[in-house]
Design a binder for these strands. Structure first.
Lengths: 207, 207
DNA sequence: GTTTGTGAATAGTTTCACAGCA
DNA sequence: TGCTGTGAAACTATTCACAAAC
């Protein structure tokens, strides 16, 4: 059935399915089933079918899902079909690692700008990208960059986020361990690495 | 009330509260309220109170929460009170960044070993830590290391995970973009950075 | 026979509203 | 008065089971 409200959890899982579909497709496979995809991704088949059911008929009963078709549809739903430019702010250890990280290309992202406030870094290059002065963040508006990756220290992340929003950025991937307040219409996803590690010991019983 | 089943979502949020409590405590503040903590962390006050209610009486009605007490209790619930040793496998860009990352200390973690399979890296140092041969992962057992951080390429992560489990590791923080299968009793938390970024465009309307 | 798509049942989580304590 | 702690209500998500499609 079409046009029901899409659960947030479904949106969270769609990139997982997309990753699996791209993986299989990259190996020359043309179609898959919810069972096969579920096994690959470590999820349940009915979850996949249910999630896809919110968006319409992806598959063919008795046969499965055509991968090209599946990838095309999920890309469209997630608005990944047009490609996206991102700017990274904070070229420290983590920032440098992300600039060199090939994984963003998988989903059609390209980091087109890097900023820092350190005079010794500005003007240099990392992973082929010129490091610009963070004071000149506003140039992102004319460059049509709508995504920002924040890898600055905790103490600077709110200010940097505000500057990015000021420059027209609509989505932020925040690696600093704190909540970032943004206006309506801007979405922040925070990855707090230490915090994720902090959940592990709870699940380790009688170790 | 004590000893109800603790929702997974509550366990996921406890490190957030801990982070907030540590932040306030570090500024010399002695007590807080669910309202103040909620504002700091960008969550709702009743959510905090509800979550804490699963574990017993943390607070004082009319007053709030004593931060020292709160931190001690949450640390204990999350089993962070004893400290944990972690080993990192894969000293590439991301791995190197994580070795230098100070945030793990916040929750009592220490990375005590780093491994790679690259002959040119083995024997060298990163962030003060000797890079060891991944073939000698088994030494982790006698070193009582129970947590592993996996920053190897996708193609190697399942093998590395199995070697870590073989060496007695009970919890894995996986940065490779794929599902890792592990035996019962071992917990994996996967951070797929590109995938998190891939969710952003969906939430950006009329941009 | 196989696999999808989905209502219905079940399970889990969030939110409310307020009693009770300091 | 102010703030916690928590049942109950409202909401959301997962799981099942099977009819329909190939």
């Amino acid at each position: 059935m079409r046009y029901r409200k899409i659960p947030d959890e479904t949106v969270r899982r769609l990139p997982v399915y997309l990753r699996g579909a791209l993986h299989l497709s990259g190996r020359g496979i043309e179609s898959t089933s919810s069972k096969e995809l579920a096994e690959l991704l470590g999820v349940e088949p009915w979850q996949i079918r249910k999630d896809f059911s919110y968006f319409g008929d992806f598959g063919t009963p008795g046969v499965g899902y055509n991968l090209t078709n599946l990838i095309k549809h999920v890309n469209k739903i997630l608005r990944l079909d047009t490609g996206h430019k991102a700017a990274l702010v904070g070229v420290g250890n983590l920032g440098s690692a992300l600039l060199a990280f090939p994984g963003f290309g998988t989903y059609g992202f390209e980091i087109v700008a890097a900023f820092d406030n350190d005079r010794r870094k500005i003007g240099r290059r990392r992973a082929g990208l010129l490091i610009e002065d963070v004071a000149l963040l506003d140039s992102l508006r004319v460059r049509a960059v709508h995504l920002g990756i924040v890898t600055v220290p905790e103490s600077a992340s709110q200010d940097v986020a505000e500057a990015l929003v000021q420059a027209g950025v609509k989505g932020l991937l925040n690696f600093s361990p704190r909540h970032i307040a943004v206006p309506r219409g801007v979405k922040v996803i925070t990855i707090d690495i230490a915090m994720d590690l902090a959940r592990l010991p709870y699940y380790i019983r009688a170790g």
